[in-house]
Computed example of a mutant assay.
Amino acid sequence: MWGALMEIGMIEGTATVVSLADGTTSLYTSAGGGLVGGGAHRVVVAATRHFLSVVGAHLDTFDEDSERAPVPESGRVTFRALTYVGRRYLDLSEKDLCEPGHAFSALYQAGHEVVARLRLVNARD
Rank of each mutant, 00 (worst) to 15 (best):
H41D: 14
S19V: 06
S53W: 00
T48A: 15
T83R: 10
G33L: 01
G38Y: 01
A4C: 11
L20E: 15
T78Q: 13
A81K: 05
N122M: 14
G3V: 03
E99S: 09
V121H: 05
A46Q: 10
H41K: 05
V44E: 13
C98I: 06
D91Y: 00
R49C: 11
G111F: 00
L35V: 12
H58A: 11
R49H: 12
A106V: 05
G101W: 03
G75V: 00
A46M: 10
D96E: 15
V115L: 14
T83A: 12
D60P: 10
L90D: 01
I8N: 04
F104K: 08
S26R: 14
L59F: 02
V114G: 08
T16E: 11
S66T: 11
R42M: 09
R87L: 11
G39I: 00
P100D: 06
G13P: 03
S105N: 14
V85Y: 04
W2D: 14
D91T: 14
T29L: 13
A31C: 06
V55K: 08
G38D: 02
R124A: 14
I8K: 04
L90M: 07
R42Y: 02
L82F: 05
R87I: 03
G37N: 03
D60Y: 03
P70V: 01
A47G: 07
K95F: 12
F104I: 00
E7S: 10
V36K: 08
G39T: 02
V55C: 12
T14Y: 11
D125V: 07
V77E: 09
M1W: 01
R76Q: 15
V85I: 10
R87M: 08
T61K: 12
I11M: 12
G13I: 00
V18I: 15
V114S: 10
L120F: 08
G3A: 09
P70C: 06
G39R: 01
L118K: 06
A4Y: 00
P72G: 08
A15D: 08
G34I: 04
Y89P: 07
V85K: 06
P100L: 06
I8L: 11
H58Y: 04
R76W: 05
H58L: 03
I8Q: 03
L120R: 09
T25D: 13
T83M: 12
H112L: 15
L120G: 09
E94M: 10
L92Q: 02
G23K: 00
H50G: 10
I11L: 14
